[in-house]
Amino acid sequence: MGVKAQDILENIRKDEEERIKSTTVEKDIDVNLDLGNLLAVDSNPLDAIKLRRSKESYLMQLARGNTQLLLNNIWQLETERVEDAVVAKLPDPETRLPREKPIPKSKPPTKWEEYAKVKGIRNRKKGRMVWDDVTKSWKPRWGYQRGNDDTKEWVLEVPKNANPNEDQFEKKMKEKKERVAKNELQRLRNIARRSGKKVPGTGLTNLPNKQQSTQELEATFHQAKRSTASLGRFENNLRNEKPAKNQGKKRKFDPVIMISEKDRQMKIVNEMFKKNPKMDVNKAVNQEINQTTVRKHKPGKNGKGQKGGKKFGGKGKGKKR
């Protein structure tokens, strides 16, 4: 009896070992696991001989080992019971993968939003329904079958000093259309401003906190200067103002009458063959001044005296008397 009991115990021990063996996999280098992606990266070197001899069975065996390792780790995770199914909670994926789209940016405020913030204007919620006095019922504020509909009036008053022949209905429609168009234009302008692009007719409309380059500032300055009733003709120049760059030049044409083709050509030829040299007054004066000063400072008694005088003054460069 005693011997048998020992055998049974031995068998149980072997069984236990086999069970544990059946789920354990040994690797020289640890397999990198990313449970969030159900991903295992095995960087152990492959067995080249086995791969050549029996490729499929080797690959399957390799896959079995790695999958067993992966699932062993998944089975260790916290589990839950959801409608007759055991569910494991996966951690967040660790592998860095590129995004599909860039990170969303916050929209910069529109021109109106900026203005409203400065002025402290806040949106008030309006109710969706309004009381319609004509039908004595609540109706939607806008859209189909709206209350207090002013587009469906059958008669309109002609203002006192208006042209009696003017169609007031048409005028009203036109005004509405213009308002819609203006709104659309402003919407597009806001989009252009957001993307930092030029808006035709208005020049740069950068966002307030965006730094402008010197060139952009200069362009804006000259645009502002030109934007008077007299196109900037009577504006004073600033002290260090630079002339506007790339401003459209007025085309100048030669007079069509009075001067003939021959005269024009002759004028050029005469200029070219003129022998007597032209006198540049400025240049001549400058030369004269230069020569006289050189003569004065020729080395001599005077020069020595000056040198000595300088020595007295020492190093100070800003010394003045």
């Binding site: 159900l38 990266v41 998944i74 839950e80 959801v82 569910v87 909670k89 996966l90 592998t95 993968l97």
Partner: peptide, 21 residues
């Protein structure tokens, strides 16, 4: 490897049914 992971990994999930692997 990065492309294949991205391509085959399927939806990103928080829970996984153990019998469904």
């Amino acid at each position: 490897q990065s492309i294949l992971t991205d391509f085959f990994r399927g939806p990103v999930i928080k829970n996984v049914r153990l019998a469904g692997l």
